[in-house]
């Protein structure tokens, strides 16, 4: 049950992070630490989602069928 809810939360977060709104903030040719800001943001957000997905997926045995 918990896993299903966490994934819904994660979906909302990912949808926001990957949305044109969030991406829009970084659409400038600036370099941050030698890396284009947009590229850095996209891959960082992506990595964050992957890590969170892994945490939820390994989140223990409390994942059961949704109601």
């Amino acid at each position: 049950m918990r896993r299903g809810e966490r994934l819904v939360g994660l979906l909302l977060l990912a949808t926001f992070l990957f949305s044109p709104v969030a991406i829009g903030f970084f659409q400038q040719p600036a370099l941050v630490g030698g890396v284009p800001a947009l590229l850095l943001y996209v891959f960082a957000a992506w990595a964050l989602i992957v890590v969170l997905l892994a945490l939820v997926a390994r989140g223990g045995p409390d994942g059961e069928d949704p109601p």
């Binding site: 994934l7 990912a14 990957f18 997905l53």
Partner: peptide, 11 residues
């Protein structure tokens, strides 16, 4: 990113 989002939906 689409498939990554779908990964969240997989469950």
């Amino acid at each position: 990113l689409g498939p990554t989002l779908a990964g969240v939906l997989w469950w």
